[in-house]
């Protein structure tokens, strides 16, 4: 069942086109990634879906509702963590959760959220005194306090240190595992690769590709390198004719085979057939990062 259906969504600010005919759907229970550089239209898309912005054209259905016409009913069932929103510095952590819980018809137990998001010790702290990571966790907890069926998380790990990011990723998976659909906006490839079931790549207001992270990598057909150290005699030329292989070379004692698609399986089975034993076998590349470059023609500049 589709939780979100977007078709031909466009948004213009004066002459500027933020979204130029975007269509996609988000399925129940998945983590759907919206990935792209700044100015690609990611946040605008989220704001339109959350009913915070009126689209110039196109239709949106979220949980079967029209975000513009049925915004109130929608906001009772959707949680958001938005970029560039803060809370009052002198508000205490528990007060914020208690306050936001009171806005919803069936709120979650915010004491449990405090525990889950590691904020129990900061319960009485003022928000202005929290660290970046603590604030971010509070904002995610606030997105969940209304017991939503769907949450939008916009750039949730921006400004976090690597350890805090890992921690946050684990918690986002927990959200999904509890049955909540997650729309995750990010400009980090590793984040999308780690978390998302499907990813839409946004570029200049359009979707250039939409697939699972693995699917996107395959789609991009990027060249990868297979490296190994043969422990018996090997004539490298015999590998160059294998399907997908684009080049074979020797770097010191190591053989480097580059290729696309499933060339690595072909190479390893050929080695096995010839009874060539190898050591230090590894594959380089094959990240969503490279796929992104291949699909859009430019790197993901922040």
């Amino acid at each position: 069942m589709a939780v979100i259906e977007v078709s031909n969504l466009a948004k213009r600010y004066g002459d500027q086109v933020a979204l130029d005919g975007v269509s996609f759907s988000v399925e129940q229970g998945e983590i759907f990634g919206i990935l792209g550089p700044n100015g690609a239209g990611k946040t605008t898309a989220v704001e339109c879906m959350a009913g915070l912005r009126r689209p110039s054209s196109g239709t949106i259905r979220v949980l079967g509702l029209d975000p513009q016409q049925q915004g109130h009913a929608l906001r009772e069932r959707v949680g958001v963590q938005l970029q560039e929103t803060h809370l009052q510095d002198k508000l205490k952590v528990w007060e914020a959760l208690d306050l936001y819980a009171s806005f919803y018809p069936r709120p979650a137990d915010w004491n449990k959220l405090l525990e889950t998001w590691g904020l129990a010790a900061k319960r009485n702290a003022m928000i202005g005194k929290l660290s970046g990571g603590q604030k971010q966790r509070l904002f995610i907890a606030l997105a969940l306090v209304g017991n939503p069926e769907l949450v939008f998380l916009d750039e949730l790990t921006s400004g976090l240190d690597p350890q805090a990011r890992r921690l946050t990723w684990g918690l986002v998976k927990q959200i999904r595992d509890s049955g909540v659909t997650v729309v995750l906006v990010s400009h980090f490839m590793d984040e999308a690769e780690e978390l998302c079931d499907r990813v839409a790549i946004f570029d200049q207001g359009q979707i250039t590709a939409l697939d699972s992270p693995e699917g996107l990598i395959d789609l991009a057909e990027t060249t990868h390198r297979l490296l190994f150290r043969p422990t018996s005699e090997l004539d490298e030329a015999e590998l160059s004719g294998l399907p997908g292989v684009t080049g074979v070379s020797r770097e010191g004692g190591r053989v480097v085979v580059s290729g696309t698609g499933d060339f690595a399986s072909a190479v390893t089975s050929e080695l096995a057939r010839r009874r060539v034993l190898v050591a230090d076998l590894r594959i380089e590349g094959r990240t969503l990062d490279e796929a992104y470059v291949a699909l859009t023609g430019h790197t993901l500049e922040v």
């Binding site: 929103t85 806005f103 209304g146």
Partner: peptide, 9 residues
């Protein structure tokens, strides 16, 4: 703060 609030019921 107003923006965050406008995303609630």
């Amino acid at each position: 703060i107003l923006r965050r609030l406008s995303a609630t019921p």
